[in-house]
Design a protein around this nucleic acid. Structure first.
Lengths: 202, 202
DNA sequence: CATCGATGTGATAGGCCACTTACTTTAGCT
DNA sequence: AGCTAAAGTAAGTGGCCTATCACATCGATG
């Protein structure tokens, strides 16, 4: 995913972007507990002071990573929805599948989008990306059940909770059995979406 | 919850239990990131070395906390199921509500039950408590849908994922709107369980 | 009542981290 | 070509953590 330009020159060229990329990777691989500015720098072969030329502190770097994650997630949802055709239920189910797939593959790199620590930061780019994503998902939910915003909100909430739950369980090693591949989880999420819609009282 | 015996004597009396209690509280309040042996000790007004008389290292203390959490969770599920009467769907829904309620109130104190770091520990008490809990929940799911283990597993998985998701969202501050009280979440979980059962193909 | 083992203490070693400061390199503009 | 400012570095500071060690206290047992 992340290119490995590695240092042959004194200056990096685009360290800011590289920090966000590598931070995202690190988060996805090892979780928030293992995330540190120093580690990101070391992985890039750069001094631990270098990141502070581009971000005032750890949380601002994290916010940039989160914004990137939110944007990427929105793009993947859109791609899946497009591929799903025109049936609104199919489209909503696809968005759920994509959401879970992203969450499962990116782990903490996904969870950080909503991290409360970053909320205090009032980072405009991050909150805009988050709002945009949720608005789009809510539209899809509304179309899937025929316009009722109240129930669409409920449905979306279940879907989002489910996705976060899968990340949690996955990163906790709850799914030890090999048949719980990421594709399998995504399929289960789509199935859950359909089941919820079907089970909703008319 | 936790009694506050505080020190007036040199010896504590029952430090081991107090460490587990306080560790659990700390986890519930502040999450795993804020958890440290030193903090637990300080909160108890005891030296930072004292815990090591009772636990060889941090992870063993965490495992004890997790075991206590699993046992407590199982008890609360049982209580809720008993109170729900005899209809199997009501009973399963109640177990889901209790599960979510516990998860939402205890936060990381719940999540730690499944923490992967502790899995390497092969702590017999912890894994037994976890197994016992899941077996019971699976029974309830099976009864709710009439005996089909395959679908019961699926249902349980959704329920568990949902609960973990609610914790994640809650602790991430996703539910900023005040109507998302813990009771509300528990009710939503029960509703989700019923909706999933109703939506399951026959 | 004396002692011994369990339990608690203070001090300390060693690790990782966030972040700062003074200095160095180099790209890009004039 | 020469200058400046952006972007990098090495070397700290101070903080918090885990874990250990020698020593202090005290309850229980003989």
């Amino acid at each position: 995913m992340t290119g490995t330009p590695r240092r042959d020159r004194y200056h990096h060229g685009d360290l800011r972007t590289a920090l966000v990329d590598t931070g995202f990777d690190l988060l996805a691989e090892s979780g928030l507990a293992e995330f540190s500015v120093a580690r990101v720098a070391r992985r890039l072969g750069v001094s631990t002071a270098a990141p502070y030329r581009h971000f005032p502190d750890r949380d601002h770097l994290l916010a940039a990573v989160a914004t990137r994650a939110a944007t990427e997630l929105a793009a993947e949802v859109e791609r899946a929805v497009d591929a799903a055709g025109s049936d609104p239920v199919d489209r909503f189910a696809a968005s759920g599948g994509a959401y879970v797939r992203f969450a499962a593959t990116r782990g903490a790199g996904f969870a950080v989008i909503f991290a409360v620590d970053l909320r205090d930061l009032r980072d405009e780019a991050l909150s805009a990306a988050g709002r945009h994503l949720m608005d789009r998902l809510l539209d899809l939910a509304r179309e899937a059940i025929g316009g009722d915003t109240e129930r669409a909100l409920w449905l979306l909430e279940q879907q989002v909770a489910l996705a976060h739950g899968y990340v949690a369980l996955l990163s906790d090693g709850f799914f030890a059995r090999p048949h719980h591949t990421i594709d399998h989880l995504a399929v289960q999420a789509e199935r859950a979406a359909r089941t919820l819609i079907r089970g909703l009282e008319p």
